[in-house]
Nucleic acid binder design. Structure first.
Lengths: 338, 338
DNA sequence: TCTGGCACTCGCGACGTTTGAGTGCCAGCG
DNA sequence: CGCTGGCACTCAAACGTCGCGAGTGCCAGA
């Protein structure tokens, strides 16, 4: 459908536009790229590209800018993923190696991504549903009050207060703790419920209500708290573009403040490879003029969470994709180690 | 120094400017406020106020706007704290009562403050230094690997991995756990170090190195992790003012991304009452055109952390102060209950 | 001490002009 | 048939001009 050269012209337009942030004309194109043809020819090609909907001119007598569809073609067929330099890789590793706990890993990852891509970074905490249980702890705080602590293999800790219908002794707690752990440690969250269903039955009649309450709190934590957490950073980078789309900043900021929106955003990420969603491909209205570059990461071969960046559709896709992919790999390594 | 009427004029200027976001002239003032004098008189008063540095005109033949000094006078002597309506109070309570854990409380508080004041909200997690220990837990993950979990009275949980020089058995762990808790539970963090210093001595010689490592990790967590956490929200509200100071948004966003800056900001808050820092009173350059309204909150009579909002110097001080104070009170209540 | 009057200032928006980058089209050439 | 140079055309942005009007400072008089 589109000749090789026309694709080349599109690539040149995208690259120039991303670099200069200004509509690019035929003359400038031939000067900055060795296309081997004259401006007139390029103009013809541009006319075709515009008919096909890949580029668009803001007004007559102005240069062309790529449309969402144009970027899509660019990302899918014209651009690779630009690997990071050795120095950058080393910087990533050094920076992430200093992290002391999960919170720290996530916080550092966000900063890193934001700095590297100069865009807004989004990092999802390792998901609970896909995690496995490392340990369940029961602590007696008061006669009828127990704190339940859940520790995941990814280092995440959730705690809940449980008010029991009757006082629970240390022996009961120790008993329950032991049985619970022997059944659920190493299991995925989703597998836990059936494994503990019959637990109350093996206890003294008088203790069963308390045990049941504790168990249901645990299940609640597993299921309900599947609610994912997300960390955001680099929002100041949005202002780099506000001379271009100043009105657009607010909806973007608003969208980014909604955990739900962010989760949906990352939820649409494919499991393998870097996912790019461009402009209107994003369901949320406020993000119609932004692109999302995201990827899953995990301690093993399977993704336990996602991370990515949000930036204007006019972004350096190869570089951004490279940075996102590289950071995800290192984070995965770090998680696997701890 | 300043006559009663001149103060009244200043108050009127501040109120009008906050309302209209436009420089206010003498005529408009006399029309909107019943000052009982003519515009000419107001002009004279304005001239004096300007000489004293309380107001300032952007350019000749424009109205006046308050200076930082003017806002300061307004806050200190002319404005009270506007209490919230009953409906607002009820909304706060309802919203906060739904919180399930500490993270949730803080997250909800941030959203609440941001919505209520329509500004950027900042909430500090209950401080560790002022907290007391509720429980210390030691979990064996591998023969020579232990997870240390620290639970505070404010519900905050910190965990650390400890690699011991030698394998540690369950008995040892149970022993240490028991002794540790009997000594430190209920103590303030700052009081803990001397209480555990001699603990290794009471263990078998071969176990002492491991015990020492675990203890030092605990102390590290107590001291080093005094590093406070902060949650931010409502940054989209910044854009409400970008037609006024568009260039100023970026430094503000940048400043808000720096945990260190935020901590300093909240660190300067007095222990009692709502603190207001106006414009250049803020040390950080990026925040020179913003005001910070903050207050301490806590479960008892003593503040364990702070919360507040950041907004343009041109803000509704009485209303903001009222909202901040009210939210702090409710959060304190919630914390005391859990 | 306050007031009304008056001349002055100056930012702002409206309007007209110019400029130039960029386009579409066409005739000619390989 | 595809590429090229030439040419007329378009139109946003930049610039200059100008009148409006809100707002001021000052002054004489009550």
């Amino acid at each position: 459908m589109l000749s090789e050269r026309r694709l080349e012209v599109l690539r040149a337009i995208v690259q120039d536009y991303v670099g200069t942030e200004e509509p690019v004309g035929s003359k400038a194109l031939t000067e900055r790229h060795r296309l081997g043809v004259s401006p007139a020819t390029v103009r013809n090609d541009m006319a075709v590209l515009e008919d096909e909907g890949f580029i668009h001119q803001p007004h007559t007598s102005a240069g062309r800018i790529p449309t969402d569809k144009g970027y899509r073609l660019f990302v899918d067929r014209l651009a690779g993923v630009k690997p990071l330099t050795v120095a950058e890789r080393r910087a990533i590793q050094n920076f992430l190696d200093c992290a002391v706990d999960l919170d720290d890993v996530v916080a550092r990852t966000v900063r890193l991504l934001a700095q590297l891509t100069r865009q807004v970074a989004v990092v999802q905490y390792p998901s609970l549903t896909r995690s496995t249980v490392r340990h369940v702890e029961l602590l007696s705080l008061a006669p009828a009050r127990v704190m339940l602590v859940l520790i995941t293999d990814t280092g995440r800790v959730e705690q809940r207060l449980v008010d029991c219908p009757a006082p629970v002794g240390e022996t009961l707690l120790a008993d329950l703790r032991a049985r619970l752990n022997s059944r659920v440690v190493g299991r995925r969250f989703s597998d836990v419920p059936p494994l503990v269903q019959d637990l109350p039955d093996s206890f003294e009649h008088e203790d069963r209500p308390s045990v049941a309450v504790m168990l249901s709190t645990l299940l609640e934590t597993l299921v309900e708290e599947t609610e994912e957490r997300i960390m955001l950073g680099g929002t100041a980078n949005l202002t780099r573009f506000n001379h271009d789309f100043p009105l657009t900043i607010r909806p973007v900021l608003e969208a980014l403040e909604e955990q739900v929106v962010l989760l949906k955003l990352l939820g649409e990420v494919k499991d393998a490879g870097v996912t790019v969603r461009i402009g209107h491909e994003n369901a949320h209205e406020g993000l119609n003029s932004t692109s999302v570059v995201a990827v899953g990461y995990g301690s093993g071969d399977e993704a336990v969470a996602r991370l990515g960046v949000v930036g204007p559709t006019r972004m350096d896709y190869p570089g951004t994709m490279g940075a996102v992919r590289a950071v995800a790999r290192y984070v995965g390594q770090i998680l696997a180690e701890s």
